[in-house]
Simulated assay, not measured.
Amino acid sequence: MAAFGTVFMPEMAMARFSEGAWSSAEIVSSNNISLHPGAHVLHYASTCFEGLKAFRHEDGSIHLFRMDRNVARMQQSSQLLSLPAFEAPMLEQMIIDIVRRFAAEVPAPPGSMYIRPTHIGTEAAIGKAAAPTASSLLYVLLSPVGDYFAGGAKPLRLLLEENGARCAAHMGMVKSGGNYASALQPILKARASVQADQVLFCPGGDVQETGAANFLLIDGNEIITKALDTSFLHGVTRDSILTLARDLGMTVSERELTVEELLERAAKPGAEAALSGTAAVLTPVGTLIRGTQEHQVGSGEAGPITMKLRQALNAIQWGKAEDKHGWLRKV
Rank of each mutant, 00 (worst) to 15 (best):
Q76K: 15
E11V: 04
L228W: 03
P89E: 01
A169P: 09
K128F: 12
A2G: 05
L35S: 11
A168Y: 12
I316N: 00
A302N: 00
Y44K: 03
E256R: 15
R66F: 08
I95G: 06
S77E: 02
R166W: 03
A153Q: 14
L42N: 00
M94I: 11
S231E: 09
S240N: 08
E294A: 15
A196K: 02
E26H: 08
M113A: 04
V140S: 01
S78W: 04
T251S: 11
H170T: 14
Q195V: 11
A125Y: 10
T243S: 14
L158H: 03
I289G: 01
E19Q: 15
S18A: 15
N214G: 05
T6I: 06
G326T: 10
F49I: 09
N70V: 07
H170D: 15
W22N: 05
G291K: 06
G172H: 07
R246L: 13
S135W: 08
H40E: 07
E162M: 13
A190W: 01
A3S: 13
L242R: 00
L217K: 04
P144I: 04
A196D: 02
L138T: 00
V41D: 00
F65R: 01
K320W: 06
A181R: 00
T258P: 01
G298E: 07
P269W: 09
E26N: 09
S253Y: 05
C202T: 13
R310P: 06
R69P: 00
Y44S: 00
S24Y: 06
N214H: 07
A2R: 15
A150S: 12
R116H: 07
V71C: 06
Y139V: 03
M250W: 06
N179C: 04
Q185D: 12
D219M: 01
Y180E: 12
F149R: 05
P89R: 04
R290M: 13
E87A: 13
M90A: 10
V28G: 07
L282R: 02
K128W: 01
A108I: 02
R329G: 02
G300H: 02
I187G: 00
T133I: 05
F232I: 10
S253V: 13
A45H: 05
A274Y: 11
G220K: 07
Q75I: 05
L200G: 05
L217P: 01
S299F: 07
H63E: 10
D247C: 05
S240L: 10
Q311R: 14
S135K: 06
F149M: 03
F65S: 01
V252F: 08
R310M: 12
E294F: 03
E92N: 12
V140L: 09
G303L: 10
Q293P: 00
A168P: 07
D68P: 04
G20V: 07
I33A: 14
H40T: 01
L83Y: 10
S193P: 14
A213S: 14
G298R: 02
Q317M: 10
E11R: 14
E123M: 11
H63W: 14
E26V: 14
G51F: 09
P132R: 00
T287Q: 11
A125S: 15
H36P: 10
A192N: 08
S46F: 03
G152V: 12
T306P: 12
I218L: 15
A72G: 09
S82R: 14
L64T: 06
H36L: 15
A273V: 04
G298Y: 01
T118N: 11
L64S: 06
D239Y: 07
E256P: 09
F8P: 01
E322N: 07
M1A: 14
P155R: 03
